[in-house]
Simulated assay, not measured.
Amino acid sequence: MSDDRVHTALAEGDQDGTRWAFGTGFEDPLHGVDTSVPEDMDTVALAAQCVALADDALVSAQRLAEWITRAPELEEEVALANIGLDLLGQARLLYARAGRTDGTGRDEDAYAYLRDADDFRNVRLAELPGGDFAFTVVRLLVLSSWRLAHFGQLTGHRDPVLAAVAAKGVKELAYHRQYAAEWTVRLGDGTEESHRRTAEALERIVPYLGELFRAHDVREEVLADLRQVTEAAGLDLPASRPLPENGRDGEHTGHLAPLLTELQSVARAHPGATW
């Protein structure tokens, strides 16, 4: 199977040929956007929505950063780092919007570095340990497909800032999904060992799908994407009953706190420092 035919259907929406989202445009993503809060907007709900989406992105980016110097090839190390930077950019914009709307005036650093695990609202799939490369790309496939579907909905949000962040994010997430889909097919349709590891990654990840769909109702769109990729990879998409815990309610695995300890260590050791 040639790489240029792998999962091309999911890339058809990228009509301008842009594949690498990070660094393709240097204009302020909120340039020209009215950043005032719309009248009659439920600012508490808006801030909570922004924080949850930002937490997903921040935690996912931290897991991807763990592959720097560990990826199987330099090209993949750069790709995963760039995807992580895209997600960090989304997190920064969303945290900044939350601080403006929740009445606290907190900046992005306060959200990222000065909250404990119980205060985070990311989905639990994002915080699971990275495992092997197969797990990383399958998780990226699931999270990017899910986030892309939701951001597509948010491009029509009443809040112009959230709508602008979503519109920018759609282009980035389309590449994330394509990258992960191509690698999932390559591994699933590869050697006996790579097939086994990719199948095991699916088995580990599928129980967390229910939590994603409780957070945002994009089930059919996401499952259609996943079925297309798994069929091309010669894999079965396992059926699973959702786990009862919900990261959106602050219910996390034991893996989030150690991740945040590493992420926040410098900021907490030197409060208020700038560099």
Rank of each mutant, 00 (worst) to 15 (best):
E73R: 15
I83P: 00
P72Y: 05
V78K: 15
A98L: 04
L87T: 01
R70T: 12
A98V: 00
G89E: 04
T101H: 09
N82Y: 10
G103D: 08
V78M: 15
T101A: 14
I68S: 12
A65D: 10
A81E: 01
T104P: 05
G105K: 06
E75A: 15
D102L: 12
L64M: 12
L93G: 07
Y95M: 02
W67Q: 11
Y95A: 02
Q90I: 02
L80G: 04
E76I: 09
I68C: 11
A81Q: 07
L93H: 07
V78Q: 15
T104N: 08
D102Q: 13
G99M: 02
Y95G: 05
A81Y: 03
L87S: 01
R100K: 15
R92C: 07
E76S: 11
R92G: 10
L93S: 04
A96Y: 04
I68E: 10
R70G: 08
E73M: 15
E77K: 06
G84S: 06
I83S: 09
R100W: 13
E76Q: 13
T101Y: 08
E77M: 08
L85T: 03
A96G: 08
G105D: 03
Y95Q: 00
R100G: 15
L64D: 07
A65C: 09
T69H: 12
G84V: 03
D102N: 13
T101P: 06
T69N: 09
A91S: 09
A91E: 05
A96C: 03
L87V: 00
I68T: 13
R92A: 13
A79C: 08
L85N: 10
T69M: 11
A98P: 03
L85G: 03
L87K: 08
G103M: 09
R70E: 12
A71G: 07
L88K: 11
L94D: 04
E77Y: 01
L93F: 05
R70S: 11
E66C: 07
L87H: 05
I83A: 10
L93R: 06
G99W: 06
L93A: 06
L87M: 05
E66K: 09
L88R: 14
L64Y: 09
G105F: 02
D86S: 03
E73W: 14
R70H: 13
V78D: 13
L88S: 09
A65E: 08
A71I: 06
D102G: 11
W67Y: 04
